[in-house]
Computed example of a mutant assay.
Amino acid sequence: MVQHDTLDRIYSALADSTRRDILTRLGEGPASIGELAEPHGMTLTGMTKHVRVLEDAGLVRTEKVGRSRQCRLGEERLDDAMAWISFYQRLWERRLDGLEAFFTLQRGTEE
């Protein structure tokens, strides 16, 4: 199972709509901090703070290219979040299947 501090950083990073927008944009390909800041009307400093949160969570990687910083999606951290979600999805599906079986059995005994 994924460590909780890793999940805390991932879900904390994803809690902000600007950071989710950044991930969506980076899904289309790499972008500079300036390119990410422009649609939000944000300063480079403000965008850098958002990118740093995403980078600390492992969701984004950055690289200095000339005078700018290029950002791209991280490679595996969303896999950690999805593994956690999938575990609980399977758990709840089993519980709901059991509940459905219980009610089906109850209906059958009433008839």
Rank of each mutant, 00 (worst) to 15 (best):
E38T: 14
D5S: 11
Y88N: 11
A81L: 07
E76Q: 10
A57N: 05
M42N: 07
L91S: 13
T109N: 13
T43K: 04
L73K: 03
M82V: 09
F87T: 15
T104R: 00
Y88R: 13
R9Y: 09
P39S: 05
L44H: 08
I33G: 10
R67Y: 12
L96C: 05
G34R: 04
H40T: 04
E35I: 02
M42P: 07
R95S: 14
T104L: 03
D56Y: 01
G29C: 05
E38I: 14
F102P: 12
T43H: 03
G66T: 04
E55C: 04
E35L: 08
R61P: 15
R72A: 14
R95E: 14
R90S: 14
D5W: 01
G41N: 06
L105P: 11
G27T: 04
A57S: 03
T109P: 06
D79R: 06
A81P: 09
E100A: 15
D5L: 11
M42Y: 11
T24M: 00
Q70P: 11
M1A: 14
K64R: 08
R67I: 10
T43Y: 01
G41H: 09
E100G: 15
I22H: 07
P39F: 09
V2F: 10
M47W: 00
A81G: 04
T6I: 12
W92H: 14
L91N: 14
D97M: 10
R107I: 15
E93R: 15
L105H: 15
M1W: 12
A31H: 08
S17K: 06
R9W: 09
R19D: 06
E55F: 02
A37D: 00
T43C: 05
L78F: 10
D80T: 05
A13G: 01
E110F: 11
Q3Y: 15
E93M: 15
L105N: 15
M82I: 05
G98K: 01
T62F: 03
A37F: 00
D21R: 03
R77V: 01
R25A: 10
T18I: 07
L7P: 12
L44F: 06
